[in-house]
Design a protein around this nucleic acid. Structure first.
Ligand SMILES: [Zn+2]
Ligand SMILES: [Zn+2]
Ligand SMILES: [Zn+2]
Ligand SMILES: [Zn+2]
Lengths: 128, 128
DNA sequence: AAATGCAATGTTATAACATAACAAAAATCC
DNA sequence: GGATTTTTGTTATGTTATAACATTGCATTT
């Protein structure tokens, strides 16, 4: 296979695919669907995913081993995910209260927060 | 191998081992160490771990794929883990502010929280 | 006591998630 | 153009977790 590049990077492809799907997907789900577009191995997907995380364009949902597009600019807010165990819907929220709570915990413990992972499992509005 | 039972269950063995180690361990790390005590397969470890989680005796740290003993009774508080990326130390805190923040987020979004996963990566007091 | 039912455990295999190691190609710099 | 660095491809392997089914121990019924 040729390595010739068109102007769409692997990261672009992965990002656009995640955006289109509107829900968290595993690396291997992405791989399966993008195989037709010249992405042939897990490594390629993981490199693209890590790049997108570094650029703040996507997040990894640790408790799902899945990846999803970021909803927008965070500024000083902390992203927090609500994950419905019934319908599978995942929503990102940017919450200032929780950011403040972390800050006050930090002051108590002397811990310098860097990458907070907040994933709340439960049931969404529609599924209760 | 005989299935004859002594009075120590697998769950007991796993719990005591985690307690002794004082840090999160992966299922396979536990398996390796407990192989000498008659635990021979991943399934056995995972069954014990899941039982201990159900009973509230241990937690899974999702972002580490590792398991650790609970620090005590939670009551209505939410467990939140500070994970030092330098020394690897993991500490559990029971924080009422964060519990309240979740509650107020729930009120806004109509989401019924069930199992909140809060894991903060960063640097501890000693490592800054 | 023998048969039955059932929960816990053992066993084997495999699925699902992620990275290491190195080769080849492309981009960059002189 | 040739050397160097960075990115990408490729193959293999490591790591985490579960599925599927057999066996054992023990309580209950016959
Ligand atoms: Zn985001
Ligand atoms: Zn739902
Ligand atoms: Zn706890
Ligand atoms: Zn530290």
């Amino acid at each position: 296979m040729s390595l010739k590049r068109n102007n769409e990077t692997h990261a672009n492809k992965v990002y656009n695919f995640l955006k289109k799907k509107k829900k968290p997907l595993s690396a291997y789900e992405i791989l399966k669907e993008l195989a037709s577009e010249g992405i042939s191995a897990p490594t390629t997907i993981y490199r693209a995913l890590n790049k997108l995380v570094s650029n703040g364009l996507i997040h990894k949902i640790e408790s799902l081993n899945a990846w999803t597009v970021c909803c927008g600019n965070h500024e000083n807010k902390v992203p927090i995910f609500e994950i419905c165990k019934t319908c599978g819907n995942v929503t990102e929220h940017l919450d200032i209260n929780i950011a403040n709570s972390i800050k006050s915990l930090s002051e108590k413990t002397g811990f310098l927060a860097d990458n907070p992972i907040f994933e709340i499992h439960g049931q969404c509005n529609n599924c209760i």
